[in-house]
């Protein structure tokens, strides 16, 4: 008799893998975006399953609400509905499949041979309070400095976007 959580894990794993495979194989670009979306939602579900609720919510907010919507918008603006992507060349497919399979086999063998030492410390519940206090801690190996770096990076990206958007078109001389 399997417990509910085990069933849930296998369901999520199936969702992630099958949607991932479909997203790289489909020839309709919008469907590919939707399959990627389902993969990301499956990964968010996996975070929920691992009880990292905050990260799951961040995953959904950033990926589903931000990145996938951005990708879909760029599809809307550049592609025609009903148009299919060009067929991939067979040799390219074989090469890519072989490379991916070899890499996968190599890594999985490595992982299986390496005996991981399971942690025995008392686990911390990753509540929002804990996350905030640990991340912005400046004394014992907190992540305040990287946090600031990332926020400066985001700010730089924002400023860059505004500069690109503000660039006026070169004036056309009608004469």
């Amino acid at each position: 008799m399997m417990s509910g959580s085990t069933i849930l894990f296998y369901l999520l794993a199936t969702l992630i893998i099958s949607c991932g495979v479909l997203s790289v194989l489909t020839r309709q670009i919008f469907r590919a975006a939707i399959y990627v979306l389902f993969t990301l939602i499956g990964i968010a579900g996996m975070y929920f399953w691992l009880q990292y609720e905050f990260l799951a919510a961040v995953q959904i907010v950033v990926y589903v609400g931000g990145i996938i919507v951005l990708i879909i918008f760029s599809i809307f603006l550049t592609q025609q509905a009903g148009e299919k992507l060009a067929k991939q060349q067979l040799d390219r497919k074989i090469f890519a499949g072989l490379a991916a399979f070899c890499g996968f086999a190599l890594t999985i063998v490595q992982v299986l041979q390496h005996g991981f030492k399971m942690g025995t410390e008392t686990p911390i519940v990753p509540t929002v309070e804990n996350i905030g206090q640990r991340m912005l801690d400046v004394n014992n190996s907190g992540y305040a400095f990287p946090f600031e770096i990332v926020s400066i990076l985001l700010l730089a990206a924002l400023v860059g976007c505004i500069v690109i958007a503000l660039r006026s078109k070169p004036e056309v001389n009608l004469k």
Binding site: I16, I17, G20, V21, S23, V24, T39, Q88, R92, K93, F95, A96, G97, A99, A100, F101, G103, F104, T107, I108, V111
Partner: peptide
């Protein structure tokens, strides 16, 4: 790992 190499396959093709 499987997802990683699915991504790699997609990136190549």
């Amino acid at each position: 790992i499987l997802l990683f190499f699915i991504g790699v396959y997609g990136f190549f093709t």
